[in-house]
């Protein structure tokens, strides 16, 4: 039995005269074996958060069933709540309480008793390097500290199953990597984890298996390597100097590749799936040189999950920042809306 199971989950929003019906979940099946991490990967609005809300008993599905450690989330919500920890997309800590008070409150709501709650809070603050800030109101915390506190709040009773909804959205790259270490550490203890993310790199790095979600449906699943294998092996990436010779070069490279060459006009870039590795790279450069096409850049690269997404949906991941770009820029509209 998997620790988290979902079968045919459907959740429909709206559908009255005013709003068009939105199928936030449109028949989602999931199975997360005990002690593993499933990465639920998809762009904004794909249905990831809705799935988490159903699995954590916050939302009733319109169809389908889901269970956590064998307990049905609709019929046995209270028992399920005893076994799960949830850390949401919006860091749900009380900003008027200190870090310590937040954790003690959660402990007391689990009926751990005053002393046990205080002890557990101290442990968690230590573990998440929040001890120095423990007695400051959490509104003074940085984004990364709040996320850590939020995650700590989800771990107060050491739940065997944890749900993390976009745990690193809006964090700067350094804080994100620190958060990854914390999350990776969780599973060493045997915890089962479901993680949603719109960062392909994050799923690649943390998850044992990945389910790609788009428009409320799981459109692909497997390990990161399996997904990459789905779209073939390496790809040759070439940037030509002269835009007018782009299509000529693409035709030439297309004949050498194992699939269709993809041309990106404004970057003067050609991407073509190939097999044959470095040797093929050499022949490609020779052939281009022979017909007098100058190149600015050339690379042979392993497919990324970005390529997987492009392949599966025919479009790039929406809202995915350029590698190395500051993710904060993406967070701003949400922050402003608060």
């Amino acid at each position: 039995m998997a620790a988290i199971e979902a079968e045919g989950l459907v959740k429909i929003y709206g559908g009255n005269k005013k709003a068009k019906e939105v199928r936030a979940l449109d028949g989602v099946d999931l199975a997360v074996p005990e002690g593993t991490i499933l990465g639920l990967l998809g762009p904004n609005g794909a249905g990831k958060t809705t799935a988490v809300r159903v699995l954590t008993t916050l939302l009733r599905p319109d169809a389908g069933r889901a269970s956590v450690l064998g307990l049905d989330v609709v019929r046995k919500p209270t028992q399920v709540r005893r076994l799960i920890g949830l850390s949401g997309q919006y860091a749900a800590v009380d900003e008027n309480l200190t870090g310590r008070e937040n954790l003690v409150m959660v402990g007391r709501l689990y009926h751990m008793g005053k002393e046990a709650s205080a002890k557990r809070a101290a442990e968690l603050l230590e573990e998440f390097t929040l001890t120095d800030a423990a007695d400051r109101p959490s509104k003074t915390y940085s984004g990364g500290m709040r996320r850590r506190l939020d995650l700590a709040a989800a771990l107060v009773v050491k739940p065997p199953v944890i749900f993390l909804d976009e745990p690193t959205t809006g964090l700067d790259p350094r804080t994100r990597i620190a958060m990854w270490d914390v999350i990776a550490g969780l599973v060493k203890g045997g915890t089962t984890l479901l993680l949603t993310t719109q960062y392909l790199e994050e799923a690649d790095r943390l998850a044992d298996s990945i389910a790609v979600v788009d428009h409320g449906k799981v459109i692909a699943r497997g390990t990161a390597d399996e997904l990459k294998a789905q779209i073939g092996g390496e790809r040759l990436q070439i940037v030509v100097s002269d835009r007018t010779r782009l299509s000529e070069a693409a035709e030439l490279l297309g004949r050498m590749g194992t699939g269709e060459a993809r041309v990106q006009d404004q970057n003067r870039e050609i991407l073509v799936p190939v097999s044959g590795g470095a040797q093929l790279l050499v022949s490609a450069i020779r052939e281009l040189d022979a017909v007098g096409i100058a190149i600015d850049d050339v690379a042979l690269r392993r497919p990324t999950l970005d390529d997987v997404f492009l392949q599966l949906t025919g479009r790039a991941v929406e809202g995915e920042p350029e590698p190395g770009a500051e993710p904060e820029a993406e967070m701003e509209p949400q922050e402003a809306a608060r």
Partner: peptide
């Protein structure tokens, strides 16, 4: 996290 994450969850009140 240490291995004590596996420890059974603390029992909570009956409601």
């Amino acid at each position: 996290m240490s291995s004590d994450t596996l420890a059974p969850p603390v029992p909570v009140g009956s409601g």
